[in-house]
Design a protein around this nucleic acid. Structure first.
Lengths: 259, 259
DNA sequence: CCGATTTTGTTCTCTCGTTCACAAACTCTT
DNA sequence: AAGAGTTTGTGAACGAGAGAACAAAATCGG
């Protein structure tokens, strides 16, 4: 599916040219670009590029063009080149990008060259699945501790990590230098857990509970909501199906839906 | 946290005014707007509004202003009003929105007034969690069937739904009129599973596997990638921490990361 | 060393999304 | 009935992101 030019594969490019072109400096230095910050849309795509690069690296591909990379990542090549240009000039004109070098640069930009300790709060079905998810560990995220309300589960060990009681949260988070918290509790408990996490010093939260968390400024929250994703699909599915059923307006169903 | 005016609560607004203002018609009719389609960014927020409305309805709040709704949904009120204006004019100036009425209109627009049957493929930790997720059922999504590769698991029943073998996929999907498929397999199997789903007539896919799925035109894919969410948080966390460690560039780690 | 070829980095344009600000429409009070 | 007070719906300004297109920089073959 992904075509890699034979020329590129048969050659081991040095980086000297890249280095010189960097030392010559374009209009803005890499440091200056970083200061301005990378556009949010680009940040969201960098992990995808990283994954594509890792896949290529595993196949022992050493060089890839923007076209090849873009197709592997599912974006168009102009967008990919522009995204990468925010990080610096890591490609070589007429050649392409060195897979490992570019991969390292992206990893460093995202902050994956250091380790991050995360905690997961709420070890229900989802929390359990998250604790076992190998994708975290493989990207430099260490699960430092698990927390649950239920006294029966406290002490249990999942994927080598012990479940603590919520009362221990503050102490453990501070001891383990946790910076990212994952909330996988029922929605009723989510805000309280969030407050505890923030109180203990966590400044980034990944929220799986279907509620809007309010946090003080300086704290980042990202939300993953399975039900919302399905609803978005349903909207498009309905449009594909064609005509809207206007007659159905007569049968009103309460907002709460079925509980 | 959410203030609801006493005036609004003590009154039961009729919709006659809304109806008249709708029958008078603005520049574009509701049907014309729908034809043009609702902006993608707005579609993504409608389920959030719906959730906020459901919460208000449960507290027996009958009317809410754009300000109140917006704060419950975590957006600003101008954006909320503009979003709602794409659906039609369902509010009353000087009063606000009738909670149940607006809720129904949004639900209808998204397509939640009809039932959707989904199937989940890959019953590992995550698939198991998804099968048990009550958020689906409460919003009109019915889990029609589960599928897994592992012969040992076939026949097992989770949350009242039986696990089928992958060989049955085509038959069951066609029989149950499934329109949405959830892929929760390891990444190696994802594309194959996706192809089978599409082949059986599924035209919307929610993908949890960390790969870029390629699908024929007309098929929608949405991706939920836990690792990517964490990486985005890590980027911002790093920026908050302040200075980039330029010295660390010396110690190069391969792209593939730890496996 | 030179011209042909490849491919990046960047500029320009266009589209999409957000926010502001205010007229229009409604309620309430007197 | 009229004026004061609310709150919506939307036009207009602004900003961010996507894509096309191309000059600049590298390689390659002779």
């Amino acid at each position: 599916m992904i075509e890699v030019s034979v020329k590129a594969l048969s050659r081991r490019p040095g980086w000297s040219n890249v280095s010189t072109s960097r030392s010559r400096e374009g209009r803005r230095s890499r440091a200056e670009r970083a200061e301005r910050g990378i556009p949010e849309a680009t940040v969201a795509r960098l992990p995808i590029y990283l994954r594509a690069l890792a896949a290529l690296s595993e196949r022992e591909v050493t060089t890839a063009s923007s076209e090849e990379l873009a197709s592997a990542a599912g974006v168009n090549s102009a967008k990919l080149r522009k995204d990468l240009s925010y990080l610096g000039t890591y490609g070589t004109r007429g050649v392409g990008y060195d897979v490992d070098y570019l991969g390292y640069q992206i990893a460093r930009e995202i902050g994956l060259t250091q380790d991050w300790t995360v905690v997961i709060v709420g070890i229900g079905n989802l929390g359990h699945a998250l604790a076992n998810y190998s994708g975290f560990v493989s990207r430099g995220f260490r699960v430092g501790a698990l927390f649950d309300n239920d006294p029966v589960r406290v002490g249990e060990v999942i994927a080598g990590v012990r479940i603590h009681s919520l009362g221990d949260l503050d102490r453990v988070v501070k001891r383990e230098q946790v910076s990212i918290g994952i909330v996988a509790t029922p929605s009723t408990a989510a805000q309280d857990v969030c407050d505890r996490l923030v109180g203990a010093g966590v400044s980034s939260i990944l929220n799986f509970a279907p509620v809007v968390l309010s946090v003080p400024p300086g704290v980042d929250v990202r939300k993953v909501d399975l039900s919302i994703e399905l609803q978005i699909l349903a909207y498009h599915e309905q449009r594909k199906a064609g005509i809207v059923d206007h007659a159905a307006v007569a049968t009103i169903r309460p907002v709460g839906g079925r509980r």
